[in-house]
Computed example of a mutant assay.
Amino acid sequence: MIWAVIPAAGRGTRFGGERPKQYLKIAGRPLIAHALDALLAHPRVAGAMVALAAGDPHWPGWHERLGKPVLTCAGGAERADSVLAALRALPAEAGEDTLVLVHDAARPNLRQPDLDRLIAAAEACEHGALLAAPVRDTLKRAYGEAGEARIAATEPRERLWRAFTPQAFRRGALTAALESALAEGVAVTDEAMAMERAGFSPALVEGREDNLKVTTPADLALMEFLLARDRDGLR
């Protein structure tokens, strides 16, 4: 059994606007619908748990998609709070060893071959796995304030990867890792960071680089182009 977890309690302040970015529409559906359907389309995913902001007026009220259950729970102020709340709220049949896929609500372009390879890697590695891509650009370390930054040094990019989602871990291990980080006041920016702190070394699974997270209006425009390209058979 595999369950999907989607933290969707954030406001998306970097994007701006009154409506949280996960509810903005592309190709006729909200971003979160694309994210959910990509996960639920996999035959081994039993259902999804979505962590929402208290009193979220934008949630469409889905109870199922693609014939699979979509459950909700109250999220928290930070991503880790929401993921932990969702893990705790999973149905009783999802035991400690259940594989959980944590995916961004605003990452709508997940492909099934990537998901297949992620699941296979996470089942083969007791430390879990995540989709990622090697850094290919030249990296610069800067000094100075934003808008006046200057180059301090060029950083080596070998062995550096960009972390994507989904990230796949066993429910019990991820719950314990997040609880430990929160108890110690450590702000973890993704689930893999919490697992690293707990002594695990998750596997990196190279995925498609168009598995983008929508963070800015420019990202939304790019994603609209990518999905239109696929719809028109130009991929």
Rank of each mutant, 00 (worst) to 15 (best):
I2E: 01
V5I: 08
V5F: 02
A9I: 08
Q22V: 09
Y23T: 05
L24E: 13
L24S: 12
K25I: 12
I26L: 14
I26D: 02
R29F: 05
L31G: 09
A33S: 07
A41M: 04
R44S: 15
V45C: 00
A46F: 06
A48P: 02
M49F: 14
V50Y: 06
A51Q: 01
G55D: 08
P57T: 10
P60A: 13
G61S: 09
G61N: 05
W62V: 02
H63A: 13
E64L: 05
R65E: 03
C73K: 05
S82M: 08
L84G: 04
A89Q: 04
L90W: 03
E93V: 14
G95V: 06
G95L: 07
L99Q: 00
H103W: 03
R107I: 02
R107K: 11
P108L: 05
L110K: 02
Q112G: 08
D114C: 07
D116M: 01
L118R: 00
I119E: 00
H127E: 12
H127A: 13
L131W: 01
A133K: 08
A133F: 09
R136C: 08
A149Q: 15
I151F: 07
I151K: 08
A152E: 15
T154L: 14
T154W: 11
E155V: 15
T165L: 02
T165E: 01
A173C: 10
L174Y: 06
T175R: 14
T175C: 13
L182F: 15
L182R: 15
G185A: 09
V188A: 06
A192G: 05
R197K: 12
G199T: 11
F200N: 10
E206D: 14
N211A: 14
K213P: 05
D219Q: 11
L220A: 03
A221H: 09
A221D: 15
L227H: 04
A228T: 11
D230Q: 15
R231H: 11
